[in-house]
């Protein structure tokens, strides 16, 4: 069974994808890294930025190996620049 994960884009990633929110499907047992890969399949322009892309699940930063669960909200964004 596949999981439907909501993905939020922030900063100029919104312009690159043309959206602030999308849904991607990943297999049950998938990880954060799998979600990112699914995003890159749909928006290849983001793929070259993978090394600098920050990923959060909810309001906490997430490692690539972290499993995702139904209902998780994943966010992708570029390096932060406050101040």
């Amino acid at each position: 069974m596949n999981l439907c994960i909501r993905v939020h884009f922030w900063s100029f990633y919104r312009e690159m994808t043309g959206t602030a929110l999308a849904e991607v499907e990943v297999p049950e047992g998938a990880t954060v890294s799998d979600v990112v890969s699914a995003v890159h399949e749909r928006w290849p322009a983001l793929a070259p930025l993978r090394a600098s892309t920050l990923v959060a699940v909810g309001v906490d930063y997430a490692e690539g190996g972290q499993p995702v669960r139904a209902g998780d909200e994943v966010s992708l964004f570029p390096p932060v620049q406050g101040g």
Binding site: W10, S11, F12, L54, A56, Y61, S75, F77, P78, V80, Q81, G82, G83
Partner: peptide, 14 residues
């Protein structure tokens, strides 16, 4: 606080 804000707090500027 300021150093870490610039590393982890999701704020962007253009």
């Amino acid at each position: 606080l300021i150093d870490e804000m610039k590393r982890v707090v999701p704020i962007w500027k253009r």
